[in-house]
Design a protein around this nucleic acid. Structure first.
Length: 322
DNA sequence: ATGGTTTTTACTGCGTC
DNA sequence: GACGCGGTAAAAACCAT
């Protein structure tokens, strides 16, 4: 729709790494160089339309005045507060009797706004999401999506009997994937207050109960971050991307963890270009085992035609390649 | 619960620096 | 000898049924 108006790079510069011109990946929020994938700025500003429509009526009716409502605050930033000054609207001091009345009103106002019951847990959850978003360096758009998902989960009574932290983490994990800025479950566990299993479980529950259509993660989405954390070159990353594309859509992809595939592709890419990158390094940044890396690595090379199945044994001794 | 698939754990020998 | 790589078997985790 109106999106391609924002698609163009906002600034022109050259990548410090590969020296080619930077294509600013607006859609993904992460401004990564298209050539080498190095991440230049993760906290990109959302240049998109100010008016986000979360509901059908929101989208239809854009005539309201004032700032847009935000799902990131428990009261959507809409509520007002009784002022602290003991003055009337003309600036006159209040009488003792009036002042007393205002004190009482303020107390009730406070009670109402702080929320009772579910409002309070909502507030807590949104704070939790905010904390994790910051820790993971995710853009505002992901935070908002996560908040919306959490609200829906709350409305559908998915929270009862489950920890706020688990649902919050699951919602965020889902949001990040929806926005094509996936974080691995491992990364989630480093910032969440619940363990990996709970996040995964709550995520799956949320996704199925709310009917969120979330595609399996594209392994290439992990490449820029992994590559940059491994300090490996542009060519390696491109090589890795090529390898992943050869298996994309084939049966080999299905059922495999995208994280493992990305890690293996990166390692394979380095191997093909004779760049020093150890399995240990990759396994450390991707949080998968060396075994997973080399199993996929072998398969990737076979699929890409760099290695035939019979050469499996000899590959280790460096008798092929080049 | 169960069974099929993938990933991890733990152990191994081999080559190189 | 330490390190990295590759292979393997068995345990654990995952996922749909």
């Amino acid at each position: 729709m109106s999106t391609h108006a924002h698609q163009q790079p906002e600034f022109e510069s050259t990548c410090p790494n590969c020296n080619s011109s930077i294509s600013y990946d607006q859609k993904h929020g992460e401004s990564a160089c298209a050539e080498c994938g190095i991440i230049l700025r993760e906290d990109a500003i959302d240049h998109g339309p100010e008016w986000n429509g979360y509901t059908a009526t929101d989208r239809k009716d854009r005539s309201r005045v004032g700032r847009p409502t935000t799902p990131t605050l428990h009261d959507r930033g809409l509520s007002t507060q009784i002022g602290w000054q003991n003055q009337d609207s003309y600036g006159q001091a209040l009488s003792a009797r009036q002042r007393h009345k205002m004190e009482r009103l303020r107390t009730w106002d406070e009670r109402y706004r702080a929320g009772i019951g579910r409002e309070r847990t909502l507030k807590q959850a949104l704070a939790e999401i905010h904390r994790m978003v910051s820790a993971l360096g995710l853009p505002q758009a992901v935070r908002e999506t996560a908040c919306v998902i959490y609200r829906r989960a709350l409305d559908d009574d998915l929270v009862v009997g489950r920890s706020i932290e688990g649902i919050a983490a699951g919602a965020l994990y889902a949001a990040a994937r929806q926005q094509e800025l996936p974080r691995t479950l491992e990364e989630m566990t480093t910032v969440a207050r619940v363990d990996r299993r709970r996040i995964s479980r709550d995520y799956r529950r949320i996704a199925s109960e709310l009917g969120l259509a979330i595609e399996p993660t594209d392994p290439t989405a992990y490449l820029p971050r992994f590559a940059s954390e491994c300090d490996c070159s542009i060519t390696v990353q491109r090589q890795a991307r090529d390898l992943l594309e050869t298996v994309a859509g084939t049966t080999y992809m299905s059922g495999k963890s995208p994280v493992g595939l990305a890690a293996a592709a990166l390692y394979a890419g380095a191997h093909l270009t004779d760049e020093p990158l150890t399995q240990r390094e990759v396994s450390a940044v991707a949080d998968v085992t060396r075994v997973t890396i080399r199993n996929h690595y072998r398969e990737l090379l076979i699929h890409a035609g760099h290695m035939s199945p019979e050469q499996t044994q000899t590959a280790a001794r460096g008798e092929i390649g080049d």
